[in-house]
Design a protein around this nucleic acid. Structure first.
Length: 719
RNA sequence: GCCCAUGUAGCUCAGUUGGCAGAGCACGUCCUUGGUAAGGACGAGGUCAUCGGUUCGAUCCCGAUCAUGGGCUCCA
């Protein structure tokens, strides 16, 4: 591997590791497309709705040009849920301006102007742009600079056209609706910034987003759908159900804390993974959260390529002020003395201020909290120096430690820890490892983008000839999980290499590529898995499979990536002794079917809208008494004991609230199963069963009701 | 990181054109003893994100910082 190639491999490596959990694959996909210019034919393929929305972008530009004639427009395409137009304008457009703009837009749609297409010569186009006539209502002193730039970028021979509505003329390839009045309903939604042509070296523009529909009814339906999705937002439900919090003040942004109810879900998922993986022949390992710098220098994440995504290192520094050890120890004693002096002074002042002579333990804590910043700083310096001296004396070298951003290097070292024979393979090392990644602050998003993540990780080391079998087994795992979570729509995006770019974008192992890709393709084909093949999207060192799933309301999530890796084990010098007594490098399959707890639970919350199936429900059963008489409470408590003895998460509500209030509380907190008991039930040895969202099922013998609960949980299905 | 918006009680949000800080829910105490989505009374809860500036006076105006959210890919 030459230097350049290995540079790419680090990049590819980090791409895999981040893609798996960040769902970046789409972005990558789009970027590849974006480099290819849309042809005029492509543009004619616009759907009716896109055509309408693109027309609406022109209407918006017309309105903005009227309000701010110096506005410079760049591009205004239709997008997934509407349209935008990029505009350069001194005035900062805020949502308050939307009403004003919309009012002007309404004037344009009401007057029902025709969209007229005019095909012009290149010279004409340039001339009009220079006169500032494009994307404007009149001639202007300054040229329409972005339009001018765009015209210059149009290849020779391609037709250039203007579209005109009323007095507004814009450079545009179309297509458009016939008249402005065809835009039945529209609304501006938000404003953001974007660089011209997406390049940060270009000027920053204001991107104004809006949406448009044939008629009001369809627009209302769209906004209702948005509202529905908002109700399912994992951040909202997570708070309502007390699943997790993000304590930015004391713990840090992007570092979620799982509350007991959320941790219950975490535990259930781990239990599922452990059972499933155990049955599939995985062995579990445990690795520390940190490793020496050498680890990541070897893996290639450091010194540069992954450094930005890792938390800065913990450095055990020897930062003495020169001089021998003796001199520095003397300095340390001096510092100790100074500190003591400072403390006694501040203590005296504290006692004087509070007027207390003998402090209680609480008051001592108050005092410690009140110590001056200067003292704290000196104290830190003191501790640091003491530590550094200790290190020097013990003869340890200065070291840097990093929080791990991925588990594979640790697992590779586990592979390397013992001599491996082909008889030991496949070795499937599994771990719910906690990784730390320094995501950019603007990238953080609820549980979906975090800085600490628990990955359902495993690395399968196998002989190349066993690959198909292993890879197939991994896919079986996925299908099994999809079934458990009721995921009906999924697609595996199988990314392959491009032979033309071997040695540049892809590791130069033509035969290995073809061989591995064929193996992957065969497995996918034979197993009847729903997949699409995406050429020229593989990672540097092997084909990859992104797993996209759709939640019950049709939102798409990328939950996991599988990666076939025929290059990195080599970097770690991993070998096994084969039958022929030769050391060979194993293939490695990286896989994480349940992604990370953070992202996966975020997905599940939205998928289920917080109404988890019984086995996952944070509170599975609540026993509710009608009244608070002692015998009834005792009966309820005995039921809870029976449930808890079988690891069922059960709580009791024995309070004095009226029964309707207790039911509502339980329903609102989405308790899966309510066992309501009154005097009648107690005498009959019965419970009356109510399921969340499904209402009262009526009285059942207690033993039968409990047995149903136990079985349903064990089999991970509904009652 | 960059642009824009937001930050008031545990939660959802009012409010003050600059002059003692508000509601509902949740919480606590008491009353209520009831059969499947809210019985009642009283009470406790706040450095109005943080720091600085203007002012007789700042939660409000100005600036900075931090955090959260929407974007920063979909090219005439």
């Amino acid at each position: 591997m030459d230097a350049n190639a290995s540079h790419h491999s680090f990049e590819a490596f980090l791409l895999f590791e981040s893609d798996a959990l960040r769902g970046r694959s789409n972005i990558e996909f789009m970027e590849t497309n974006a480099t290819e210019r849309k042809t005029l034919d492509d543009r004619q393929k616009m759907t009716d709705l896109e055509r309408l929305r693109h027309s609406c972008a022109h209407v918006m530009a017309t309105a903005i040009a009227k309000l701010w004639p110096d506005a410079q427009f760049a591009a205004g395409p239709p997008v997934e849920n509407g349209f935008y137009y990029d505009v350069e304008l001194e005035h900062r457009i805020s949502p308050e301006d939307f009403l004003k703009i919309e009012a002007e837009m309404k004037v344009v749609t009401k007057s029902n102007q025709t969209f007229e297409k005019v095909v012009v010569s290149r010279d004409d186009a340039l001339d009009q742009a220079k006169r500032g006539r494009l994307a404007a209502l009149n001639d202007r002193a300054v040229p329409s600079k972005f339009k001018l730039d765009i015209i210059q970028g149009i290849p020779e021979g391609e037709a250039i056209s203007f579209y005109k509505n009323g007095d507004f003329i814009d450079l545009c390839a179309g297509p458009h609706v016939m008249r402005t009045g065809n835009i039945g309903a529209f609304k501006l939604t938000h404003v953001a910034s974007a660089y011209y042509k997406g390049d940060e070296k270009n000027p920053q523009l204001q991107r104004i987003y809006g949406t448009a529909f044939k008629n009001k009814t369809e627009m209302e339906a769209y906004f209702n759908m948005i509202e529905e999705a908002k109700k399912r937002d994992h951040r909202k439900i997570g708070q309502e159900m007390s699943l997790f919090v993000i304590d930015t003040e004391f713990v840090g942004p992007g570092l979620p804390l799982w509350l007991p109810k959320g941790a219950a879900i975490v535990e259930e998922l781990e239990k599922l993974a452990k059972e499933t993986e155990f049955a599939a022949g995985y062995v579990r390992v445990k690795t520390p959260h940190i490793a020496k710098e050498k680890m990541y220098l070897t893996s290639g994440h450091l010194p540069k390529l992954y450094a930005d995504s890792m938390f800065p290192p913990m450095q055990l520094r020897d930062e003495g002020s020169g001089g021998g050890l003796d001199a520095r120890e003397a300095e340390l004693h001096q510092k100790e003395g100074n500190l003591e002096e400072m403390v006694s002074k501040e203590f005296a002042a504290f006692k004087k201020n509070s007027g207390i002579d003998l402090l209680s333990p609480d008051q001592v804590n108050d005092f410690l909290g009140s110590l001056s910043e200067e003292y704290q700083k000196k104290f830190d310096e003191y501790v640091h120096q003491k530590f550094a001296i200790g290190l020097v004396r013990s003869g340890q070298p200065v070291e840097r430690y990093y929080l791990k951003a991925m588990n594979c290097p640790h697992h590779h070292r586990i592979f390397a820890a013992e001599p491996r024979s082909y008889r030991d393979l496949p070795l499937r090392l599994a771990e719910y490892g906690t990784n730390y990644r320094y995501e950019q602050s603007g990238e953080l998003f609820g549980l979906m983008r975090v800085r600490s993540l628990n990955m359902n990780d495993a690395h399968i080391y196998c002989q190349p000839e066993k690959f198909a079998e292993e890879f197939n087994a991994v896919n079986e795992l996925y299908l099994k999980y999809f079934k458990i979570f009721g995921l009906e729509k999924y697609v595996m995006r199988f990314s392959t290499h491009d032979p033309k770019r071997l040695g540049e974008k892809y590791v130069n192992e033509p035969e290995l590529w073809i061989q591995t890709e064929n193996m992957v393709r065969d497995v996918l084909k034979n197993s009847g898995i729903n997949y699409v093949e995406v050429p020229n999207e593989a990672a540097f060192y092997g084909p990859k499979i992104d797993v996209q799933v759709w939640s019950i309301i049709g939102r798409e999530f990328t939950i996991a990536t599988n990666q076939v890796d025929f290059a990195v084990p080599k970097r770690f010098g991993l070998v096994y002794r084969d039958k022929d007594n030769i050391d060979k490098t194993p293939l490695c399959i990286h896989r994480a079917p349940l992604g990370t707890h953070e992202r996966f639970i975020g997905f599940l919350i939205e998928h289920y809208a917080g109404n988890f199936p019984l086995w996952l429900a944070p509170e599975q059963v609540r026993v509710i008494t009608i009244g608070d008489e002692q015998p009834l409470v005792d009966y309820a408590k005995s039921i809870i004991q029976e449930l808890r003895a079988q690891m069922v998460r059960a709580e009791g509500d024995y309070g004095t609230d009226p029964i309707k209030a207790k039911i509502q509380k339980a329903e609102q907190s989405k308790v899966h199963t309510m066992l309501v008991i009154g005097g009648r039930d107690m005498e009959a040895g019965a419970v009356s069963v109510r399921l969340h969202g499904k209402g009262n099922l009526g009285a059942k013998p207690k033993t039968e009701a409990l047995a149903n609960i136990f079985t349903a949980i064990r089999e991970r299905r509904e009652i």
